[in-house]
């Protein structure tokens, strides 16, 4: 499942997209994020349970600002959370 966390406002789209089928709940992205945007939670989408990465409640409504320091200014630059994820479960809308 593609879980979109974030919002769209007048200045653009700000979403972190986590593929919960690929996320194995290892928590490496949580450690890699310098601004504590990500956390591990129980998977409440199915009765199977398990843990998965998610964007914290606190950051969901302001990721435009929370994630800004990691955004590439020019050229291509991989983000720490995307680099840390071995299963390639994290993508961004920017």
């Amino acid at each position: 499942m593609q879980a979109h966390y974030g919002y769209k406002d007048g200045s653009g789209d700000y979403f972190i997209i986590i593929d919960t089928d690929n996320c194995d709940g290892c928590g490496k992205c949580v450690k890699a994020c310098p601004y504590e945007v990500l956390e591990l939670v129980d998977n409440e989408f199915d009765i199977e349970g398990g843990s998965m990465a998610t964007v914290t409640e606190q950051h969901r409504k302001k990721i435009k600002y929370s994630c800004a320091p990691c955004k590439p200014v020019s050229g291509e630059r991989k983000l720490p959370c995307v680099l840390a994820c071995e299963t390639k479960a994290i993508t961004h809308s920017w």
């Binding site: 499942m1 879980a3 979109h4 966390y5 919002y7 769209k8 406002d9 979403f15 969901r60």
Partner: peptide
């Protein structure tokens, strides 16, 4: 009925 993708707006 399994979720494939979702988007929430609670701002």
């Amino acid at each position: 009925g399994k979720v494939m993708s979702f988007l929430m707006n609670d701002k």
